[in-house]
Design a protein around this nucleic acid. Sequence first.
DNA 1: ACGATTGCTGCAATCGACTGCATGATCGAC
DNA 2: GTCGATCATGCAGTCGATTGCAGCAATCGT
Lengths: 350, 350
Amino acid sequence: MAAGPHGTPTLRDVAEGAGVHAATASRALNPATRGLVNAETARRVMKVAETLGYRPNPMARGLKTAKSGTIGLVIPDLTNPFFPPVVRGIEEVLEPAGYSGLIVNTDNDLLRERTQVDLLRSRQVEGLIVATALVDHPLLEQLHRERVPMVMVNRRPHGFDVPSTVPDDAAGVALAVEHLAGLGHTRIAHLAGPTTTSTGGVRARAFRNAVRDLGLDDDPRLTVVCHRWSEDAGAEGLRTLLDGDAEFTAVVAANDLIALGCYDVLSERDISCPDDLSVVGFNGMPFLDKLGPPLTTIAIPHQQIGAEAARLLLDAIADPTRSARSVLLPVTLVVRESTAPPRRCAGAVR
Amino acid sequence: MAAGPHGTPTLRDVAEGAGVHAATASRALNPATRGLVNAETARRVMKVAETLGYRPNPMARGLKTAKSGTIGLVIPDLTNPFFPPVVRGIEEVLEPAGYSGLIVNTDNDLLRERTQVDLLRSRQVEGLIVATALVDHPLLEQLHRERVPMVMVNRRPHGFDVPSTVPDDAAGVALAVEHLAGLGHTRIAHLAGPTTTSTGGVRARAFRNAVRDLGLDDDPRLTVVCHRWSEDAGAEGLRTLLDGDAEFTAVVAANDLIALGCYDVLSERDISCPDDLSVVGFNGMPFLDKLGPPLTTIAIPHQQIGAEAARLLLDAIADPTRSARSVLLPVTLVVRESTAPPRRCAGAVR
DNA sequence: ACGATTGCTGCAATCGACTGCATGATCGAC
DNA sequence: GTCGATCATGCAGTCGATTGCAGCAATCGT
């Protein structure tokens, strides 16, 4: 067990073991420079490295090359079931490429976001995958100006071009509306996400387009904007909808959390789903099939979204001049028991 | 904007700006060595560092000090809702201490676990927080021998002493059984977790103890071991229970996922919960209150478990000689609608 | 008033890997 | 048999921060 004073074998240990200079060992071990070394010598060095269990010290390497081999993942809250699969998708791509992800949670707090990104940058991350909510974002703009390689997931940037991977929101909403229309609903409500997020806006617009395309009642009173992507906000949204005077027999929630908020109001007001009201979610988070009733939703490929984002980022790092590309991923309708034909003579639901 | 050729200001830039040597600047900036420097000089250096936006390069620092400021988090699957809150609890403690967590997923695969831990070690993590399932684990033993600072979450190590933070499993199970007994159940079944995990064993033993303590029917046929902590395994477990000839009116699942598996079987066989069968889960994962029916469960303080684990690890890093301390965290019973008194003349459920 | 202590700062080596440049060896060509 | 080309390897400096040691000045004690 030849090893340096610190226990782990160093490049010099390997070089010594192979009877060559550290420089030669370095070249032999690096596939890109291996050609510079005699094939036989290279083989020998590699064998010694192998038996010694040599691991290049990423700090020493990073110090010299100014590369850390890490990527910062900026997400609002890991506890939101949306993100873990996305993270796994990201790591699935990053790992084989020799990168690791550093996760930070911002809780959608602007200040916290800033300090967390600072933290990441001080850790020398080579790029950022950003999943935060806000669409108009001075910090993002600043990072973009500073040429920090960056990709957005699930959100589109506003003014400047940054690569992004997003689900096909418009198609998803259309799927939901068509499904409800097919069941016979004509007055469908929408609980929109915050307008401060691109997703909220896109889905709301897609909703009205779908309603119009199908010739359903296009009543502006049937769209209520939730101020957050949360159960609470969803509950509040449905309450104002119910307390309004517009009739509706179905609601398309801008995401599953908002739909879950609806469930709270339903039991609170003793409204039956799907008998009195059909509900459709969006995102396809886990365990939706165990709800009472199981929630019909638009499933999106979380893992793929992450994987694509990671690929885009690696591309951007490899070639910073490449223009921003964005990926739109297909979504699917998952029909469960929260949707059904409207009752014969459904009036205003209250 | 004075800065080095790479854009980010270096220690020498600061030193130059303050008219001192880099060594002095280093000492002035490090709180531990600041006393060695003239107070006025230190102030000046710090001000220059501030205005320059100086960030010490963690790689250079790490190279010299052989510390990376990172901790490895070894978890089975981030997608399992159990872990995200634990991770947040961990980071909540790690961050103020200047550490970052590097997350890897093992999918409970022994080989993958090994390569992932190798990855972490090659990234020079200063310690490991391990949440993997297996109780007899050559890799863990090896790490322990190699003196890698390490803490386990939610599991107790088998042969050797490693600090750990676990929920009070025994108390939780007792709470569940008492709750059911209080409702009038006398024949209570247990869907145990894998015996390869300490948690599985502990909860199963606690179950039998609780049943005996309360003078309920202690029938060995009423305990079935699930071979994994998953919905599938839970479903399978309940099926064998139902297909057996022992009567029971309630079931304590070793965790929520197993309880969710029960829900599948209930609808599959048209058994009503809680009318025909009461079900109690364990862990208190999110959205359980939205299920049909909302699941009664034992809530455990996920975030606290993580935070305590991180604290233990920081202690272990600071003083490796300190003996292993373990923390037991209190759990609470959350009563919802999956439990009710048994029907008057409940026979065998089938 | 002189040697000794204390306080502050600079010098230079170090951590481990990378890399431009130079040197040495080998071989072919004329 | 010598010269130049090619190939392989070694040398030494570099990345940025840290730290033992030395040096210098101011202060103290007697």
